[in-house]
Computed example of a mutant assay.
Amino acid sequence: MSEAKSIVEVGAADVQGAGVVACPNPKMALWSSHPKVFIDLSHDGQGKCPYCGTVYKLKAGEVLHSHH
């Protein structure tokens, strides 16, 4: 049986800069901490943490504001 990975849905207001979120996120327990990394959601609306496998994705209907 495969272990289910966490999926964290984020709104546009949770995204920093050009479309990134930080992992670990503030809701994670301290024991599961790893070095802070930024997950880029700007390409396809989701991204996965290389350390813990948590998937971050934009909530349905949320739009990132690009500065192109």
Rank of each mutant, 00 (worst) to 15 (best):
K48Q: 14
S66D: 13
S32N: 12
A22I: 04
L30K: 13
H34Q: 04
H67N: 13
M1F: 11
V20G: 02
S66K: 11
I7F: 02
G11H: 09
H34Y: 04
V10H: 14
K27Q: 13
V15C: 01
V63F: 04
G11T: 15
P26H: 03
G53M: 00
I7L: 05
D40H: 01
P50F: 08
S32D: 11
L64N: 04
S33H: 10
H65I: 13
L64A: 04
C52H: 03
K48V: 15
V55S: 01
V21P: 11
G47F: 01
C49I: 00
I39A: 04
A13L: 10
P35N: 07
G45N: 02
V8L: 11
V37A: 07
G53H: 05
L41V: 09
G17Q: 09
V55T: 15
T54H: 00
Q46E: 15
G61N: 08
G61M: 04
G61P: 09
G11K: 13
T54M: 02
S42D: 02
S2C: 10
W31M: 12
L41I: 07
C52E: 04
F38I: 00
P26A: 03
G45S: 04
S33I: 01
H68V: 00
S32W: 08
H34R: 07
A22D: 07
Q16P: 07
G19E: 04
E62A: 10
V37S: 02
Y56C: 07
E62V: 01
I7N: 08
A60Q: 12
V55N: 01
L64G: 05
V8D: 04
V15S: 00
C52Y: 02
G53L: 03
V21R: 08
V15H: 00
I7R: 10
L30Q: 12
S42Y: 00
K57W: 05
D40R: 06
V37T: 13
K57Y: 07
Y51N: 14
I39L: 06
Y51K: 01
S66I: 06
A13K: 14
S2R: 11
F38W: 09
S6P: 08
S32H: 10
C23Y: 00
G53P: 12
N25S: 12
S66G: 14
V63P: 01
L30I: 14
K5C: 12
V63K: 13
C23R: 01
K36N: 15
P50E: 05
H68N: 06
G19A: 03
A12Y: 05
G45Q: 03
A18I: 06
E9M: 05
E9P: 14
E3G: 11
H67E: 12
S42A: 09
A12W: 06
C52A: 09
D40T: 12
K48N: 06
V55A: 01
K27N: 13
E9F: 09
P26F: 01
I39P: 02
C23Q: 02
K36M: 14
V15I: 10
V21Y: 10
K48P: 02
C52Q: 05
S2A: 13
V21T: 06
P35R: 06
G17T: 07
K27D: 14
D40L: 06
H65E: 12
A4P: 00
E3I: 09
E3S: 13
A12K: 13
A22Y: 05
K27R: 12
S2M: 09
S6F: 12
Q46D: 12
